[in-house]
Write a protein that binds this DNA or RNA. Structure first.
Length: 618
RNA sequence: GGCUCCGUAGCUCAGCUGGAUAGAGCAACUGACUUCUAAUCAGUAGGUCGCAGGUUCGAAUCCUGCCGGAGUCACCA
């Protein structure tokens, strides 16, 4: 038993047993083994039902005979019991000692050696006209957790983001700043602001001014005439949907913003200079938010640099017959044969659309990093877009076409519905983080021990606890499902939360601090009355490598998050059930400390993958 | 309307490659701190797993239909 591929050993032995006992050739894939339910005695359970059709016996009889075979052929199977078609196996103490020793030997338990594979991941993808919000937080936490999960599987991971730094939105902020900013900067503002919030303020100012302008226009003769010509039910529904048309065709503010965008496209020096400055402010602010969330990137792609690429690919695609040209000059792909619609890839004026840009960026990344595998962390509202994108890349015979994956996550909603910037219900990322950290601080006030720490350490601790709560709250939900974000629950520190898991770790660290002062350790292998709680912990620890693998393969950090909670919960119970430092014997104490140390190590390793830091005390 | 996803306890979520009596947390109620950190633990209560069929020894899990919700189907990004 060099490594603990427990299930493999059991399954091959069952296959051998079926052959020896009954001359039945059964494929190993039919052997099902899982953890034993806690009501029954045993650690692992073999399901006998699927086997009865190969061996003409009733399930219970077969279970008993297989149990006897396993007991005499595997030294670690100490006993068994059969209930209906369930064969419960009891393992010997030697087994548990060997398992603990094995885990102690592994320096990077759960992590795989280098795979030689490269994966590129894109996440976050902010706009430069306003600060990050709750939706970005989910994206960033998922993305950065996936980075570390993929690394745990031995892959080299390249972290990228595409920064949406051009377009009408940033022009709105720029225009508002020009009109009403009076030369103010994030640093001269009173009080000074983070750059992203500063620019966001002007975006909001623009929107307010535009709304006001639109409202006044609605009572004009021109507006009323347009309304009467339409077949809208009432003026509210008409003007509700007419806003964009108004912006493009009638609004003075809209015209100014559009002109600014055109000047930007032409490369007007003054516009470009302002754009550089304001983008710089935003990106500096966003960078601070990233640091707090534990995200970083080694390569940024700027939309302003890539928005027009992809055209070459389209031209080649036309030659390959992937795309066709319409009479007006626009270029399309017809995907109707695979159940999708026709998709435009070049406008009639020859300019790129969103998907053309993505075609180009994919190719650019391939050239930059020579990687075959791309992961896009983008909300599920863009599922169709990525289906189309991947289909197009496949048709263009991109060498990386088979390695594309859209990590599609559900939108974040608030208990009373969606976040709408128009209604001011957007939850700002920085505000949210500040709120959870100050709540952690309040909750910590009563804890006398912490008040003795230097102020700086206390602050760091509140940060770990508050952000730990927030990050875990978001990551414990299955990525692909939409989630309801309840601000009150997100700052809970009890129950299935980040701090609960941190607390298990803290307890272990405290034990270790207290122990280091005392006697030399007993021989843990001489401990011979291993308890149910201890076996449960060992079984959970044993699962860690496969949990990491599964979470990585399924692009689902919540699998890991839920597992870590179970491990912490199991430890808390163990902690209450048995004495550790004052154990019955030195052997028991040594065993338990060693076990606790493994638990701490896995908790820390797993939580770090989720981007949560673990404090030594709390 | 087409396609995709979702529907599990009052709320938020696990479980879904079919397996034993469907699990947690929050909220409610009861109990455990002179004890290794009570940000903890033990317990009570709470369920037609949206509905109806089907496949199977066995279905929350697979298939079909229906009901309810979300997303998407732009010369927006």
């Amino acid at each position: 038993m060099a490594d603990f591929t427990l299930h493999d050993i059991l399954r091959t032995t069952v296959v051998k047993g079926l052959d020896e006992l009954y001359q039945a050739k059964v494929g190993i894939e039919y052997i099902q083994i899982g953890p034993t339910r806690k009501e029954f005695e045993g650690e692992q359970t073999l399901l006998v039902f699927p086997l009865v059709r190969y061996v003409k016996k009733n399930p219970e009889q077969l279970a008993n005979e297989l149990g006897a075979y396993l007991k005499s052929n595997l030294d670690f199977v100490e006993d068994f019991n059969a209930v209906k078609g369930f064969l419960n196996l009891v393992f010997s103490d030697n087994y548990w000692h060997a398992m603990l020793a094995w885990m102690n030997r592994e320096p990077h338990f759960g992590f795989k050696s280098p795979s030689g594979k490269k994966v590129l991941i894109e996440y976050s993808s902010p706009n430069t006209n306003k600060p990050l919000h709750l939706g970005h937080i989910r994206n960033i936490l998922l993305g950065s957790a996936m980075v570390r999960l993929l690394q745990s599987q031995g892959h080299e991971v390249i972290r990228t983001q595409i920064i949406n730094d051009r377009g009408i939105a940033i022009c709105k902020s720029m225009l508002a700043w020009q009109k009403w900013g009076d030369g103010e900067t994030p640093f001269t503002a009173n009080p000074p602001m983070k750059g992203d919030h500063f620019v966001g303020k002007y975006y909001v100012l623009f929107d307010q001014a535009f709304k006001e302008e639109y409202k006044q226009w609605q009572s004009s003769e021109q507006a009323q005439a347009l309304y009467k010509q339409s077949d809208a039910k009432d003026s509210d529904s008409f003007f509700g949907t007419y806003k964009n048309t108004y912006f493009n065709n009638y609004s003075p503010l809209g015209r100014e913003a559009t002109e600014m965008l055109q000047n930007w496209e032409k490369g007007d020096l003054k516009v470009r200079a302002l754009w550089q400055t304001m983008n710089g402010w935003v990106l500096e602010g966003i960078e601070k938010t990233y640091q707090r969330l534990g995200a970083s990137f080694e390569k940024n792609y700027y939309e302003s640099e890539v928005y027009s690429i992809g055209k070459t690919m389209v031209r080649q695609g036309i030659e390959q017959g992937v795309f066709y040209t319409e009479k007006d000059g626009s270029v399309w792909a017809n995907l109707e044969d695979v159940g999708m619609d026709k998709k435009i890839v070049l406008r009639s004026d020859g300019t790129s659309v969103y998907i053309t840009q993505d075609l180009g960026t994919a190719h650019l990344r391939y050239e930059d990093f020579d990687t075959q595998r791309f992961v896009y962390v983008v909300a599920d509202e863009q599922e169709y877009h990525f289906k189309v994108l991947f289909e197009l890349l496949k048709r263009l015979k991109a060498p990386y076409a088979a390695g594309l994956h859209h990590l599609s996550y559900g939108m974040v909603e608030l208990p009373d519905g969606k976040m709408k910037s128009r209604e001011g219900t957007v939850v700002d990322a920085d505000d949210l983080m500040n709120a959870v950290v100050s709540l952690a601080e309040n909750e910590s006030k009563d804890r006398g021990e912490l008040q003795l720490l230097p102020e700086q350490e206390r602050k760091a601790l509140y940060e770990m606890i508050g952000l730990g709560a927030l990050k875990y709250y978001i990551l414990k939900v299955n990525a692909k499902k939409k989630m309801v974000f309840n601000p009150e629950e997100s700052v809970d520190l009890q129950g299935q939360t980040g701090p609960y898991i941190q607390n298990a770790f803290v307890r272990i660290k405290s034990l270790e601090r207290k122990d280091s002062a005392t006697s030399q350790p007993g021989n843990s292998k001489e401990y011979h009355s291993i308890k149910k709680e201890e076996k449960h912990l060992l079984t959970l620890l044993h699962d860690y490598p496969s949990i990491l693998e599964e979470s990585a393969v399924e692009y689902n950090p919540s699998g890991l998050a839920v597992y870590l909670y179970q491990l912490a919960k199991s430890f808390h119970r163990f902690y209450h059930e048995v004495r550790i430092l004052s154990a019955e014997t030195e052997e028991a104490k040594s065993f338990r400390l060693s076990l606790a140390n493994r638990v701490a190590s896995v908790l820390q390793s797993g939580m770090n993958i989720l981007g949560v830091q673990m404090p030594d005390r709390m």
